[in-house]
Structure formats: C-alpha cells, structure tokens
Nucleic acid binder design. Sequence first.
RNA 1: GGGCGCGUAGCUCAGUCGGUAGAGCAACUGGCUUUUAACCAGUAGGUCCCAGGUUCGAUCCCUGGCGCGCUCACCA
Length: 501
Amino acid sequence: MTDLAHPDRLAKVAAIRADGRDPYPARGVKGEPVAELRAAAGSAAEPGARVGSTVTATGRLLGLRDFGKLIFAPLADRSGRLQVGLQKNRLPDWWPRRKELDGGDLVAITGELGHTQKGEPTIWATSVQLLAKAVAPPPEKWHGLTDKEARYRRRYVDLWASDGVQGVFIKRSAVLSGIRRFLEDQGYIEVETPTLHPIVGGATARPFVTHHNALGSDLYLRIAPELYLKRLIVGGLERVFEVARNFRNEGVSQRHNPEFTMLELYEAQADYRRMMELCEQLIEGLAQTVNGGTTVEYRGDTYDLSAPFKRQRYPDLFQEHNGCAFDDEPAVRARATELGIKEVDGFWKLSNDVFEETVEDSLRGPIFVTDYPVQICPLTKTSPEDERLAERFELFIGGMELANAFTELNDPAEQERRFAEQVALKDPETPGEVDYDYVQALEYGMPPTGGLGLGIDRLVMVLTGQDSIRDVLLFPAMRSLPGAEQELEENEAAPEEAVQG
RNA sequence: GGGCGCGUAGCUCAGUCGGUAGAGCAACUGGCUUUUAACCAGUAGGUCCCAGGUUCGAUCCCUGGCGCGCUCACCA
C-alpha cells in the first residue's frame, strides 16, 4: 500500500472482511445514469412520472453529511450527480454498519425517487451496497485538486474531483468519432501504419530512437505517418486516413507534448484547394457536433469556425509585414539582422524564420496561409503558376498552427533530389538518409493527390477552450518521480522476465 | 536547455525578521431525520521536497539537487 491509504479506512476493510463480507465484490450492479434519474424526478413543484418508484444507481459517494439518523451524500457517475438520502428507518439492517461508509466509496444505491423539503431530487435509499472501498481519502471537497501537478499525475482523481474535466475528454471523444463519421461519409477508409520506422521521414523533427533486439537494428518512433499513407495511395486505396500518435523528441510547452495525435488523410485526384474545403467543412461540422455552434472562446478571443475560412497567400503576408519579398535575399537578410534572427539552415529557413517571427502571432484566424516557398516544402508539388512556390497551406487559429496540407509531390526524381538536399543539411531534425523505398513507390506512379495533417490535440484545445495541451491529454508527459525511476531500473535489470505478448 | 516562481498535515493554504509549526476541509469520538462547502463539541494527524553549508540551534539564511508551473528557445 502507498502512504495515501488511510489507516482508519484500512481498518474498515479488515472489519468488513472479518464480518464475512467482501469490500471489493467481483460483480457490479446495473444502475441507471443519475442524470436520467434526476430528469425523471422532475421538480418538487412538478414531480416527474417516476417519483415514488424504486430505482437503482451506482457511482462514487463524494461526501457524507451526517445528521444522526439521516445522512445525505451526492452520488456521482459519468452522467452527473444525484443526492442520496440514507435514513435510519428505511435502512434498519444497514444502519448499524453506516460507519463503514466513507466519502469516495463506490456504491450501489436502491431506493425511492423523490425530493427533500428544499426540493432537491433524492434517492431515499432502501439498500446500500458497497462495490469498492476507497482506502485513499478524496481531495478537499470545496477546492478539490487545484495543484496542476497532482491533477496530471493523478488524473484518476482529477476526473471525478474537478468539474468539467470529464467533459473535455467526452468532447475529445466526440471529435474523434465525428472525424471518422465525416471521412467515412466521404468514402475514406481508416488505416493503421507502422509506429516503428527504420528511416525518419514525413516531417522535420528530432525522433526518439529505440532498438529491436531480434532484428539487431535501431528503429525510430514515427514523427509522422505521411510516407506510409502515400504508399497506400500508390497502392490504389485512393482515400485513406489515420489517427496517428506521433512522437517528437523535443521540448514540452503549453502547445507541445512529446507524443501527440494527428489526423492525416490523403485523397487521390485532389489538390490542396480541395483539402482546404475539406478541412474547413470538417472543423465547422465538428464545432456544430461538439459545441452545438461554430463560435468558440479561446484565450480570451472569440472565433467563428464557420466555413469558408479566410485565405491569404504567404508571399503577400510576408511583403505586408516586412516590406520586402520573401525571396529578396539581401532585403530579407537585412530584416533578419534587424530582428536578431540568426541563420541556421540556409537562406530559405532564415526567410521562413522571419515570416514566423513577424506574421504568425498575428494570425488569429481561422485563416489558411497558402503558397509557401518551395524550398521549405520537400514533399509538396511545385505550383504550376509560380515555380518559386509550393501548393501548400497551413491553418492558424489563435496564432497556433492547427493544420498543414499540400498537393503531394509525386515526381520520383524530384522527390529523390529533395530528399538528398535534406540529407545534405546534416541537421539532427532532418532525415539522415534518403527513403529509397518511398522513391521507388513513386516510381510505380502515384496519382495527383491532396494530403492534410490536422493536430487533434490543438483542435480539441480550441473546441474546448483549454489553454494548455496538457488539459486535453488524459496523461500528459511528466518527468518520472524518483520512486518510479527506481522501479523502472529494477524492471530493466530483468528483461527476460518481461511478460511475453 | 535558459530565465522567473513555487514545494509546510490526505486536500486548500497561513506562518516562523533563525529557537523543530497553525487554520479550514477530510479522518476519528460524541450530538443532531431535510442538508447540499450542513452545524456544534472534542481527538488525532507533519522527516516543513532532498542533500550539504553557516550557526549554540535551520522548516526559515546560503549552495547544490529533485519535482511542478509560467516563460523563452526548438517544434505541430
């Protein structure tokens, strides 16, 4: 047991066992959601149809208010809360054991649906059944858990002790099912591609490295599913999507977690314009489904997520905010010096750094920034109208990048050349070798294709009004505590004993 | 990784200008059959994050470490 287990509560567990009863029975009890029971109770002035009938509910007792021969307690389940009233004269057999019950315990309550004198809907219990004893005490009833570290580390408490937390994750689930419904209606199929990659690719990011013992080779946790999904387009699946967990070995922040979820989709015979329409329709539809409207509050500002979103070209935005063209090298270099931006990976990266510094924060959105410099788009088709530009767009809301999409580069020779350029940079965030298998896939012919990547965590942040990505992740990345680290080392010391799949 | 801040009872927080600590809630005992942060009386509960240093004495001051938050950098 950990030191959170309370001696008094442990003593109650022992007493229940000594009495021949089970504090952790194997079988649950079927109850009705308390929100439905609350609705069925109506109000004291206008009692619902089921007032006076016998009902059963299960859930967690959040606190006990003991009046001697009457105890009130809120019972919480996933649907909400409903008060239960425990009275001596309705529970003559159970009453002597009432001290066995503590706040936080999981119970099944059967009783008569009714109201109190103050009109609170209440189950007047005729049966109390312990389903699982809580030996760790619940958090303080009024403040709850406010310490963010405790909330993230003990999400299993936060979820029922903090208002609104369950709601965020229920909405997140609605976002995912909404995405699946929307795309399946459009003829897409959901696929799963490898998470362990022999070659890093599909994005610019530092990977996590791991090792496969039997194969005797290092593998990388995927930073993006992109190259595998486009292989499927070569394979003729035509419309595919994956809800992909990606891993990037970079810093954590309010907007970054080392593992995050991205929707990636690819559609044959489509281009980036079609992807823009798909993207805005998807987001508008999700806002309607999840929030019942397209207006959202995020970081103190109001955003209208109804389609169509605003569109502005990258070259125009660059010119507007910097007074020079993005490819006017002397002027851009002068501007970079003025802003204190240093060159790391050549002029085009520098130019884009200037763009990000001067433009991105002002993009409240929702806005599509379109037509990026081709040099910073290694997987994107060059614009037929302007060879300096690539058919790519990014979606911004509240200064935050939510989506990235383009008309996919399908010329194998050009793809090989651009891969080689990336490898030549020898940057820890660019691929270390050319993915020839992917080039070969393109050699078989990939149809004209549009692709879209949408950050699910960030989208959920916008749709639920959460400022930090940690608040839309059930278990955000945290440093391991000293004790946990020790356990990890002990486990690693005996790998042969690891459980086999 | 850098900067700033925080770490005291199960939870939310006071406090000690350096003399080993308090409140409310939770728990326990007693009272109370209509509360909803119930109330009243009492009891118990702490390596004051860790390790060094200064000091007669450190929870407090200093140094280092650990953890978290915010922020900057990198990225989505």
